[in-house]
Design a protein around this nucleic acid. Structure first.
Lengths: 258, 258
DNA sequence: TTACAATCCGTAAATTATACGGATTAATTT
DNA sequence: AAATTAATCCGTATAATTTACGGATTGTAA
């Protein structure tokens, strides 16, 4: 959706295709350079940042819509993508937005009965992605994108800061009950890599040896007979997730600490 | 809403007052007779059971709507009420319902453009209530109510069984991280009472002594200098929740097992 | 007074989590 | 070729937590 006609059609007739009052707002979390990053899009005109959201088609199952939107925005499929909350309390989601402001910003001339200006509740999903595999696509409303360090998220449009915060809080809680990393790390990774990933997510130091013991002990990762060259130092062994144990732990849950 | 005119107005004009495509479906969990019970309403005509749901007013914050609906149905206020999922995948929530079936059931004659027949996503909340304090109110669509033991939930309308199951699963998970009981037990309760409550929720035996040690050790409950007469047996001491520690644990979360 | 049935209480063993440092290695530099 | 560097690798001892377990006590009814 990039031509002016497409946009006009979307704004005027989108309600025929999409459910009004609802948007899906994925918090796309990537990992790079030992830091957690969140993908944000820059809105045209509004001069602010927001989540790469989308709408639900009228007969499309909700989870399918979430995957579709993520795919449209990032090109990624088969991701860890999890619904964590629906937001409908903040003023932005109760009051309708200003039509005039919108028309001015986008050079449109639509009236106030348009579906887009009705109150919209936001369904929060979070996804864990391999940072390097993402190719972001912007659309008519968004002009730029950027990966933001989680500690430096700017004030977001549409009260979305609370969405991001809740996503991260959910992730931190969840890491105690579910294995995480399958979608954040390359297929083969080293102990130090997964170790610092967990430290980054939890925001605290974890003892290397105990951490490795735990993960291997749970059978979630296994050591390979390969090493990776990493400059003038001892080469670390490579590890891999045990798919079966991993999937199982995702379903069953784990009870432990790291 | 009980007169025929009110109902007609609701069906025809409800969309002016309520957000379409969304319903709030609370799983109201009560505790009685050492069993967890769920409050279900019996639909007229459809001859089936369902959750005591409601709709969100157009400018009403989401959580406020949830509390209002709960209050309308049960007369209760200030409850532990928590959103846990939004359901939009099951066929019922993707396909629109049959108008004819509806008209036949309720003796109405409305056309298919009515908001009620559009696809509806269901926002799941669960509430923990003191069984004895609830006074259920039915409405035009529902003729009867009943507390059902969680192990005996019948097939529900609108694919709501998955809503109930997920509510219970969430509760069981949550009990490891948050104190539970404040809204399920009377103000003063005995150790055996709270002990069996936890056993009931978790569906497994918990050692009495260790359980009491844990809760007292965490400072969540405190022993009172009173006892309760319970027939021809030794009188148990009464306990009370420590409000401050309880609230704090609700916010901070607990890491432990029982 | 006795019988009964439920409550109350404390310690020992097992498991799990935490703390901790020295030997090894691969590449680069000398 | 040897020395240097910086990162990986590994195992054991201590602390903390969880689990296991039974006998003495109490209030009422018979």
């Amino acid at each position: 959706m990039n031509s002016q006609e497409e946009v006009n059609d979307f704004v005027k007739n989108g309600h025929q295709q999409y459910l009004p009052h609802l948007s899906i707002d994925p918090v796309i979390i990537g990992y790079h350079d030992q830091q957690l990053k969140v993908l944000l899009l820059k809105w045209i005109g509004l001069n602010g940042w927001g989540l790469p959201g989308g709408f639900i088609q009228r007969r499309e199952p909700l989870s399918q819509a979430a995957h579709r939107i993520l795919h449209e925005r990032t090109g990624l499929e088969d991701l860890f993508l999890q619904q964590f909350h629906i937001f409908g309390d903040s003023p932005y989601r109760v009051q309708e937005r200003s039509v005039n402001e919108f028309n001015e910003t986008y050079g449109l001339a639509i009236d106030g009965n348009t579906w887009l200006f009705e109150r919209t509740l936001s369904i929060g999903y979070f996804a864990l992605v391999d940072y390097s595999k993402v190719s972001v696509r912007t659309d008519f409303f968004t002009v730029d994108y950027q990966w933001w360090d989680v500690s430096e998220i700017p004030p977001l449009l549409f009260d979305q800061n609370e969405v991001v915060e809740k996503a991260l809080a959910t992730l931190r809680l969840q890491i105690y009950h579910q294995p995480i990393g399958y979608n954040l790390l390359p297929e083969k990774f080293t102990l130090p890599e997964i170790h610092t990933l967990y430290e980054t997510i939890l925001g605290k130091k974890l003892d290397q040896r105990n951490f490795a013991k735990k993960l291997v002990g749970l059978g979630l990762i296994k050591k390979l007979d390969e090493q990776r060259a990493i400059g003038p130092h001892r080469s670390p062994y490579l590890y891999q997730f045990e798919k079966d144990a991993y999937e199982n732990a995702l379903k069953q849950g784990i009870v432990h600490t790291y």
